[in-house]
């Protein structure tokens, strides 16, 4: 079964998110609780503030799956509802079928850290 991770509307005012880092590579067998991706959400376009209102989030898998493809790279901007990754319940199912459902994930606010793309830019 093909599973998909799409960017959901984490914050009501967001239009998308920037990929900060990925924790897995295509082909990896991921367990429930595996970290998948860290994202940053910048609400600058929604709020006129003197500093960018940026917050950081992590997507963690709530089920076991094989990571099959990653649709984004660190630094890429992904719009809300666009695909981030495809997973499957077995390692080698063909990806030519549309995803059966969304992968079960947890989203949590995190602190920025050194592995993040935006941290490395400075």
């Amino acid at each position: 079964m093909i599973l998909e991770v799409r960017l959901t509307q984490i914050v009501p005012q967001m239009t998308g998110a920037t990929t900060e880092c990925f924790y897995a590579a295509p082909g990896d067998a991921l367990r429930m609780g595996s970290k998948l991706i860290d994202l940053s959400v910048d609400l600058s376009s929604a709020f006129a503030q003197e500093c960018p209102p940026v917050s950081y989030y992590r997507i963690v898998l709530r089920e076991s799956a094989f990571l099959r493809s990653i649709e984004t790279r660190p630094g890429d901007f992904t719009a809300v509802d666009q695909s981030i990754a495809l997973l499957s319940t077995t390692p080698d199912e063909p990806l030519d079928e549309p995803p059966s459902r969304a992968a079960r994930v947890t989203i949590a606010g995190i602190l920025p850290h050194e592995r993040m793309f935006s941290g490395q830019r400075i």
């Binding site: 984490i10 914050v11 429930m32 609780g33 595996s34 970290k35 989030y57 992590r58 963690v60 898998l61 709530r62 947890t106 989203i107 949590a108 606010g109 995190i110």
Partner: peptide, 10 residues
């Protein structure tokens, strides 16, 4: 904006 079901991934 969070839906933490388990802290295992952190």
């Amino acid at each position: 904006h969070e839906d933490i079901a388990s802290y295992m991934g952190f």
